[in-house]
Simulated assay, not measured.
Amino acid sequence: MTTTAEVASQADERIRRLESQLVREYDDVPPSLVHEWIERARARFGGARVQEYVPLFVAREVRASARAFPVTETTGSTLSSWARNTARRLLAAELPRRWAHTAGVARRAEHVARVLPEDERELLVAAAWVHDIGYAAELKDTGLHSLDGARYLRRAGVSDRICGLVAHHSGASAVAGLVGLADGLREFADQRGRLRDALWYCDMSTGPDGQPTTVQGRLAEIRQRRGPEDPVVRALAINGAERLAAVRRTHRLLRRT
């Protein structure tokens, strides 16, 4: 008679073989991400009554994720489409208000992108879609959403530039310093310039429900919603002026075009 331990061992072996097969099958997807998808699917189906079918269910779910995986940035709209779909999957059902804000930021980015060089426009829109995915429970690790989101994107093979934009968006470095995660955030380069300013502008001029707002209105809403002891609010005293400067620089560019 097969023991429970033997059944578990056999299941582990089948999953390991499946992972090797899927890594070969989808060689354009980072192996670490294939592993992450497998573990997520396995946890979902772990309680199935007939464990023999679990590898089949896992394979089906991982293949669906792999088919939706982005190709390189050179394909333009493919990147922003993947970013939009990823944000929708992670946020829409679990955090509908965060999803509404994200969609509003992306709409803003599509409008603002015209002030950027052509090769940066798609990067802005894609970064806008994924800037807050680190709030999703599935990605939460450190609790600093910008860092958790950037690390997920890095595992997914997204470019260092977008990862850096997400990691440092809207003054995240000050928050990281307050919560002891400055070293973690330094894994990603903070590339200052028009693209960074534009993402901060889009985020800081979009309300929590996706509606356009002024930066002053956005800051007031953050303070009211989070309270004075929240690190995000405390960080405003450290780099609030930097956020305002980024918004003003982008606003000046918009007025010229």
Rank of each mutant, 00 (worst) to 15 (best):
I15F: 06
R225A: 14
L124S: 11
W200E: 09
H145E: 01
A106T: 12
D132V: 13
K140R: 15
A64F: 07
G164D: 03
T250K: 03
A100I: 03
P31G: 09
L123W: 02
R155Y: 00
T75H: 14
D12S: 15
E13P: 00
P208H: 09
L181H: 03
E36Q: 15
E52K: 13
V34M: 06
R108K: 13
T250E: 03
R60L: 04
H168R: 03
I15Y: 04
V247L: 09
Q51F: 02
H35W: 04
A182H: 14
V58H: 01
L90K: 05
F188P: 02
V23K: 15
A64V: 07
V112K: 02
E242L: 12
T102F: 09
V125S: 03
T142D: 06
L144R: 08
T142E: 06
D148F: 05
Q51T: 11
F69A: 14
R67C: 01
A156Y: 10
P117S: 03
V50I: 13
R16L: 11
T86E: 12
A48P: 00
K140T: 14
R49F: 12
R252T: 08
L253I: 01
G47S: 11
W82N: 09
G157D: 05
E229V: 05
V158E: 02
R63E: 10
A100V: 04
R223V: 07
A126G: 02
H145S: 04
G193P: 05
P208R: 14
G149W: 10
E61K: 12
A41I: 09
E221S: 12
G143K: 02
R255E: 11
R88Q: 14
A100L: 12
H101N: 11
A113Y: 05
P55L: 15
R24S: 12
G184A: 12
V71A: 13
A11N: 06
S9R: 15
A189T: 15
G104D: 06
E138V: 10
R42W: 09
E73H: 05
G171L: 04
Q191Y: 04
W37L: 08
R252S: 08
V247F: 07
R155W: 00
F45I: 01
T72I: 01
I38A: 08
I222S: 02
I222C: 08
E73S: 11
A66V: 07
Q224W: 06
V232S: 09
G47E: 06
E39Q: 15
V158R: 06
A103Q: 11
V62I: 12
L244T: 09
L56P: 00
V105P: 04
D12W: 11
G134T: 02
G157Q: 08
N239Q: 04
R218W: 11
V166F: 08
Q216M: 03
R192G: 03
H251G: 03
S65R: 14
Q51K: 12
Q224M: 07
R249M: 01
A5I: 06
Y26I: 00
R84E: 12
Q211A: 15
R121W: 02
E229R: 13
